[in-house]
Structures are given as structure tokens and as C-alpha cells.
Amino acid sequence: MTTTVENMKEHNAILRDVAGYLPDERVSADYFAALVDDENLAGNVMFAAPAYRHHAAGGETSADMMLSAARVLTDRHGSDYFDDVSVVLTHSQLPEVPVRGCGGEVADRLGLRPETVLDVHNGGCAAFAHMIAIATALLRAAGGGTALLGLAQNSASQIFMQDQVRGKAQAAIPGDGAAAALVALDGAGSPVLGVATRSFGEYSADMTAVSAPTRKYWEAGTGQIHIGFTQAKIAKVLARGNRMVPAVAMEVADSIGIAPRDLDWLVTNQPNRTAPRQGIGWWLRTRRPPRRGRAFLRNWRDALELPESRHPDTFDECGNLFAVGVPLTLDAAVSDGRIHDGDVVMTSAFAHAGDFAAAAALRWGGRR
């Protein structure tokens, strides 16, 4: 199924390999169906529950999960795989430690002494393509080396399992997990054909953390922090996400001279899927039919004229992995034999309530 494209210009970066990690604890949709108390949003298409998701173990941190993913890479390629790392970039969905982030800890525990350590927070679900772009720029400026990318989604077991939050419709969707990748400017691997990152700061205030009673997230209090969803905000997010992900993917496809429908693979973030495909216990619990409609995954591939068979996802096993969804799904589709050497893969995602979007296309060249 390899796409042949003339005059493809490579983005002067190579994805050497990517690896995913899932915690051992696997939680079914039935657990949340028995807890549901958020009648107002339970039937919304945004909250059609996956069959399963994974939760980080008690005390398992972002750094722990990134290290677990990174060790998959050293197990594959040898203990010297990170010897040339000069840049470490990390993204945690829920940074456990204020101010410093976890990048320095990850580098230290891997025995690295990079020139640059950077915690990339604002990329959200689009962080993978964003980090590839940042890594490429930093490596070019330094004249070489490699960049280790570490991503962790750790809010499912912490934010969404709080006793005031786990009965809300939103709680059944996220799962925990991590991914790691190595990026270089040359050598063997998967050439990055094009990258686009786009900021829409006017929408940033639409993603809010709330509690009852109201408090700032660092203040002590009885109200547990969660995401402030309303029907009006959900409608805005659906409209923006449905537009942004295919738009930025089409921009990259045009820049490399390939029609979107000719892409071999589309790998996106996975906020939800079309209701009521999974989580039927959830809908039975609400005692009413769901509000039917087409959610992100189907709309995105339809916009790019791609069949479902070329749009892999891990939603039913992992739920919404936020920034980890793209690299972990890419790793899964390579591992199970769907993606082959020479295939053109478009990754695309949007972040938060639509304040950022990014896409990166690559020609898969194997694990190197």
C-alpha cells in the first residue's frame, strides 16, 4: 500500500523509532457506568465511553512512565541507543511538580547529560508533532546530535478518579499511558516529510479547570479540580476540532505534494468516537438514548477521503490518551504489521479547546 510521490521534500529530520507504554491496571467501562451521576452530559457524543482504559499505579509518575517507554527503545536497540542524545523534550498532561517539570529527572535517570532540557506543556494533544518541530530546530542549531521525546498522560488515575469527579460523564474517557521517540537529523529511520504547527490563542480561555466550591488549583479546599464542560463549550470544541485536524493535515499534504486521499495512513489524537459504538452500559445507565452524531475520528477521515481501515486508533483499549495517543497508536500500528516500510503516515491533532493544532508527515522507514 506504499504511496509513490514525486518531488517529496524531506523536513531534514528522521524519526528513528517510537515506543508506547501502558500501565498494568485495565479498567472497564462497566466500572464508570455504575458510578455515573452526570445526567446533563452523559448522552453527549463527546462522552461515548471506550471499552477499556489503563490507569497508572499509585505513585507512578510522568517520569516513571516516560522511562518505561524509553526502556522499550533500549530493549529493542541496545543500551547505547541514547548515547548521542543532546536534547530531551518532555510533555506531561498533569505535571506533578510545579515550576521545574520532569525533563531533568528523565535525563538523569537515563544517565544522560543533554545540552538542552525542555518541558513542552502547551502542545496538548498535538504535542508529538510540536515536539518533532522543536527537536528539529534545536538539533539544527546545535549542528547534530539526537533528541529524546517523552510524553505521558497521567490524569486518568489522578484527576478523573477523584470521588467528586469519577461519576461525571468526562471521567470514563481518559486513560493513562506514555510514549518515547528518538529524532535525529540524519541516518536511518523515517524521514519527516513536512510539519505544520498552528496556534489559535483566542480559544485558549475555553479550556477551564473548575471545582465546587471554586478555588485556584494550588489553593487548599474541599472542591476537586476537573474540566469545566458545558453543552455550549462542547459544541465549540466539536466544531473547532472537526475543522482543525483535517485542515492542518491538508496543509502538510499539500506542502509535500500528495493528495490527502492518497495517504497510506492517518494517525490522530482520539478524544472520542461516534456514539454509541462502545460503552453501552453507560447509555443503559442513563435510561435514555444518546444524542447521536458523528464525532471526531469519523469526521476527520471523511474530510481527508480516507477509509476507516487507514485510520488506526487505540481508543477502545486505551481511551483518550491526549498527547500520547498519536505516538502510541503509531507504535501499535507498526507493531501489529499494518504500517510497512515506505508507507506515508500523516499524524495530526488539535489541543485543549482548539487553541493549537499540528501535523507531521513521515515516510515510515522501520525501527532504527
Rank of each mutant, 00 (worst) to 15 (best):
R287W: 12
R310Q: 11
E305A: 13
F322N: 03
L321P: 07
R277D: 09
L284G: 14
A295D: 10
P289Y: 04
N320Y: 07
W282D: 03
T274A: 09
A275F: 11
W265D: 03
E317Q: 10
L266T: 02
G279V: 02
R294L: 15
T347P: 03
L284W: 14
P260V: 12
R273F: 10
A295V: 06
S348C: 04
F322E: 07
D264V: 02
P271S: 00
F356S: 04
N269K: 03
V344I: 15
E305N: 08
P307M: 01
E317G: 08
D302C: 10
E305M: 10
F296Y: 14
Q278L: 12
L330D: 02
T286C: 15
A275C: 13
R273A: 01
R294T: 10
C318I: 04
D302P: 05
R277A: 10
P327G: 01
V326L: 05
R277S: 08
F350M: 13
W265Q: 04
N320P: 10
R291F: 12
R298P: 03
L284E: 15
C318L: 03
R291L: 11
P312T: 05
G325I: 00
L297N: 05
D313N: 09
L306M: 13
W282G: 12
E308R: 11
E308A: 15
F296K: 02
P276C: 04
G337N: 06
H352G: 13
A295P: 02
R294C: 07
R298A: 11
A351E: 01
I280Y: 10
V326E: 02
N272H: 14
R294F: 12
R287H: 09
F356M: 13
N320H: 10
R294V: 15
H311K: 02
D313C: 02
G279N: 01
D336T: 07
P327D: 08
V344E: 07
L297H: 11
T286M: 15
N320D: 14
R288T: 14
R273P: 06
V324I: 07
R288V: 08
V344T: 12
G337W: 08
D355W: 08
D331N: 10
E317C: 06
D262H: 11
A349H: 07
A333K: 00
R287Q: 10
L321C: 09
A275E: 07
G342Q: 03
N320T: 02
N269S: 12
I280P: 07
D341N: 12
G337F: 06
A353I: 10
A351F: 09
S348I: 07
F356Y: 15
S335H: 09
G354I: 06
R287K: 10
